[in-house]
Amino acid sequence: MKRRLPLAICFIMGLVMIVQFFIPHPTSLAFSSVIYKWIIVLMAFALVLAIGNLIRHHGEKIRRRKEDWPYSIVTLAGMVAMAAIGLTWGIASDSLYQKIFLNVMAPLGGTMFALLAYYMASAAYRAFRARSLEATLLLVSAFIVMIGFMPFGQYLHPRFPAFAEWIMTVPNMASQRGILLGVAFGSIATALKIILGIERSWLGGKD
């Protein structure tokens, strides 16, 4: 019961969604739309669970005065303030919620990803060595794409940007397509294993 019922629900849902895809009747589409709304609701509940875990984790850190505990207050205060503002005054384009998004969240997120430019470049400098033909190809293609997409590239040679574009649309496209096909076949196989109950790791636990 503890394992069979969830497995049966998973099997039925998987089968229903596959069959539904091949029946473009309005009833089938309406059914799919209702189930999609249910899934959105379930994801929201999962988020509540995640938020609960976050509160528990940081609450525990503050209570036990663990290392860097004052920053946990910043996290919890930021979350409570943002949630209270959005739930009280709404999310219209001129609301305080959107202002915080634009002037706090966007700069923080944007700068964190911008930092990666430095770390990726420094990691590449240390790791990229033209020791073999394959490594040289990787190095050269990265260099051409980087230079080609900079305004500086066309001063080196007027056809540099076009060459970078060619690398992106021909050899890069070929390898990405091959990888994508492999990933697609792998994902289909995994999905089938889940529906048929062969892959059961999502059940967790022993009983």
Partner: peptide
């Protein structure tokens, strides 16, 4: 960093409330 985590979570609470629940 900690402010970003907090504000981002607050953002998604509100987002899911208004757009999902």
């Amino acid at each position: 960093e900690h402010l970003f985590v907090g504000v981002a979570n607050g953002y998604y609470i509100v987002y899911y409330w208004h757009n999902a629940l």
